[in-house]
Computed example of a mutant assay.
Amino acid sequence: MSLRLSTVILPVDRWQECGRAKWQRAEELGFHAAYTYDHLSWRVPFRDGPWFGAVPTLTAAATATERLRLGTLVTSPNFRHPVTLAKELMSLDDVSGGRITLGIGAGGTGFDATALARSDQEPWTPRERADRFGEFVMLLDRLLTEDGKDGVSYDGTFYSAGGASAGGAQNIPGCVQRPRLPFAVAATGPRGLKLAARYGQAWVTTGDPKLYENGTPQESVQALRGQIEKLGKACADAGRDVAELDKVLLTGFTPDRARPLESVDAFVDFAGRHRDLGFTEIVIHWPIPDSGFAADQDVFEKIAAEALTQLN
């Protein structure tokens, strides 16, 4: 099974200083894709430092590169609305010449999860997050697929589109990629996996968060095997072949999170074990000093240049 290697470039650098150079270097190194997080801010040590918007960053990256796929890992309903997001994504797909993948997930608590809430408003419960996510993905799929002049009209529990006088929310001329740009759905629970099976062109996981602190690499592999099995069942229930979906592992959150970037051999060992589980794409973070994503830049680039020749 062929394996692709991609990277995540966090939006922490001013574009004119070194932001542009990182995305261009990612293309030079031959990465399949370069993604960025879609947050308003993120956890320590990034919480009180520079953090730029995902869509403008990806738009700039699209004009600075030619072949590299680009996308979010991941966008969530925390501060996004399907109608405005669909318009931005359609435009971004156009600027990039059809190189955009939307990584999308239910979102979590903390950081920017309550940025748009009133001071007396309680955070969404896990059930409400799942409910919102389901409606969010369904409506976004319609908005990006039904791009004719009639537009999309919808009145849901959490979202609406195309009010009585608007005549439908329009996204003309639609995405360059047809019938729309691909969704990479991040999910581990049953409801999220159903959404991946129904709407996804790819599925994303970071592993089992319960194993992050005290788990072992072996336990992590077993947990990921179980997630892929559950994805297969969700696809079977949806009448779909699980082989149609790419399986994407966003690294940095498994028990052995630091080891894969210690050397080319360490990465090949890590990636080979996960390829054998069925993963088709491994995503590694661009090194950031003094953070949980610190790594030797030379080793990182050597992995990008050499690792796949040993794996494929």
Score class of each variant (00 low, 15 high):
L89G: 00
S160G: 11
P209N: 09
P126S: 12
G252W: 01
G151I: 08
Q222V: 15
V95N: 04
R257F: 11
G110C: 05
A34K: 01
K230S: 11
C18K: 08
E28C: 01
P179C: 06
G272V: 00
Q227F: 12
S291F: 09
L73S: 06
F31Y: 10
T101K: 00
S76G: 10
F79Q: 09
G105V: 11
M138S: 14
G174T: 13
A61P: 13
D241F: 11
D120E: 10
L231C: 06
R80T: 12
V242A: 14
A305Q: 13
P50F: 09
W15I: 02
D246L: 02
V55Q: 04
G189C: 07
I288R: 00
L10S: 05
T206K: 06
Q201L: 03
P173W: 11
W286N: 04
R118S: 10
V44Y: 14
L231D: 01
D290A: 09
A223N: 06
F300D: 04
A295H: 07
G272I: 01
G167N: 10
A34I: 03
A21H: 04
R275F: 00
A294W: 07
E306M: 03
T7N: 06
I282H: 05
W124F: 15
D13G: 08
A21P: 02
A117V: 00
F267Y: 07
A258W: 04
R99S: 05
L73H: 03
H32G: 12
T72P: 09
T280A: 08
S263C: 10
F31P: 11
I303T: 03
A238T: 14
P209I: 08
S91I: 12
R240C: 03
T188E: 09
P45F: 07
W42L: 02
F111N: 12
V83K: 08
F279S: 03
L40K: 00
R4L: 05
D265T: 11
C175Q: 05
L181I: 15
G200F: 08
A295R: 02
A202Q: 05
F31T: 03
A117G: 07
C175E: 04
P209Y: 02
L70Q: 03
S165Q: 14
S41T: 13
L308K: 02
A184G: 07
A62P: 13
A243H: 13
L10F: 11
Q310N: 03
V95M: 04
R198N: 08
G252N: 10
A196G: 03
G239H: 11
Y159V: 05
A164Q: 13
R273V: 10
R191A: 14
W203H: 02
F267E: 02
N78A: 15
A184F: 09
R47P: 01
M90I: 15
